Amino acid sequence: MPLAVLLSWLLNSHTPSAILYSAITTPVVTLWLRHAMQSVNGLHKWPAEQWIGAGTILLSVVILCSPLLYFLTPGIVGAIALLIWILLCVYGAFAATRIHNKNLSITSAKLNRQYRFVQLSDLHAGSRSNKFIRKAVEQAKSHQPEAVFITGDLLDSSSVDQHTLQPLAEFECPVYMCIGNHERYVDLPAAIRSIEHNRVEVLRDSSQYFESLNIIGIDDADDRQQVAKQLPIISTDSTHYQILLYHKPDGWIHACDHGIDLMLAGHTHGGQIWPFGYLVKLRFKEFLGHYQRDNCHLYVSPGTGTWGPTLRLGTRCEMTILDLAPAA
């Protein structure tokens, strides 16, 4: 465990002592984390989630500080590592509370006027509080969107109810959503009832016109061919501007081939805590940000909230302000 290494540095103890400490504490901590993460009690789960995040940061700090042992005593290296760890955790906690605005402008010959939309993704009500959900809604409302798109993982706990999601009902515009993997992991029918109670239209392998724009939502699935399989059986019309909401950044090429103009996704969190982004990139080719193929666009949000630990390091919470306009 990185904590055992850090303590051995701080105490100037020998390597065998660190190994013995690790051998004793690792099974205990592992059992506690397993029990806490399976608990529906937030008071049990929250500390475990934060420790997972802080422990991940500590692991990186220990690895990066290890070369200093060639030049400094273990005690000094331990003090440096401890200070860096604390500062990074404080920064990460702050970064997880701030929602950045990402502006994205796209033009198309299919559009006959300008539109402004806001994309929210991975809010993770349950991991995040009602207060955070309200903050995201108020910030989104300040951009005066004509519609809001939620690209999955709105919630991640069966304890989330209508009250937790109540801020969503305060939008003065249509709100469209596709379900993400975390909606599938809970009581999905109950989750959808709570979501729809707050005036959110959940598009489940279906489409809905917003003026002349066709908004399509596809349910998240583990199958990487989900988009390719579902689009042919959903009502689409390539003569209209078409926006696809799908939680994972899978199937974008199939979406382009099927006449989709803009695909919105999330799920990756940008890795959330460095250096996890490098691992996520191995799974998702279109990992984060804006991609374009001819007139077909994809935007992968790093997420508006966080999952598990309320920490961000090397990434940021974000909402996307989409400005669509006719091509000149």
Rank of each mutant, 00 (worst) to 15 (best):
T310V: 04
E211Y: 08
I76P: 02
D161Y: 01
R113D: 06
T306A: 09
W46D: 13
L313S: 02
E49P: 03
W51R: 00
T310K: 11
L31E: 09
P2K: 08
M263S: 15
W51S: 01
G314F: 05
N103V: 10
G266H: 12
R113N: 11
Y246H: 15
L322M: 11
S129T: 15
K141N: 09
L68A: 15
A191Y: 05
S39M: 07
N112Y: 04
Y209I: 00
S212G: 04
S129F: 11
G308H: 07
T268I: 06
T164E: 12
V202Q: 09
S108W: 03
S8N: 12
I86R: 02
I76Y: 05
G180A: 06
V186I: 06
V186N: 03
N181M: 03
M319I: 06
P27C: 05
S158F: 00
Q144I: 01
I76D: 02
G305Y: 07
H143R: 09
F284K: 10
L87S: 15
A18W: 00
C178V: 05
N41I: 14
R113C: 09
Q144T: 10
L120V: 04
R312F: 05
H197Y: 13
S60F: 05
T25G: 01
A54E: 03
S127Q: 07
Y185K: 06
A36G: 03
D237Q: 10
A4Q: 06
L68Y: 06
Y299P: 00
L231M: 10
S17I: 10
S207D: 12
K285P: 01
L20F: 12
C317T: 12
I57P: 00
F276K: 08
I321D: 07
K131F: 14
R134W: 09
W51A: 08
T107V: 08
L322N: 02
W46T: 14
T151R: 06
H290G: 00
W307K: 00
I215N: 09
A221E: 13
K45R: 15
R184Q: 07
L104N: 11
H44S: 14
A4W: 05
L20V: 12
S207P: 12
K229M: 04
N214M: 11
C296D: 07
I243T: 07
L68C: 13
F287K: 03
I57K: 00
N12P: 05
R184C: 02
L104C: 13
L279S: 11
S206I: 07
L188P: 03
E318K: 04
V137K: 06
D223C: 08
N103W: 12
T320M: 12
R113F: 06
L64A: 15
Y21T: 12
F276S: 13
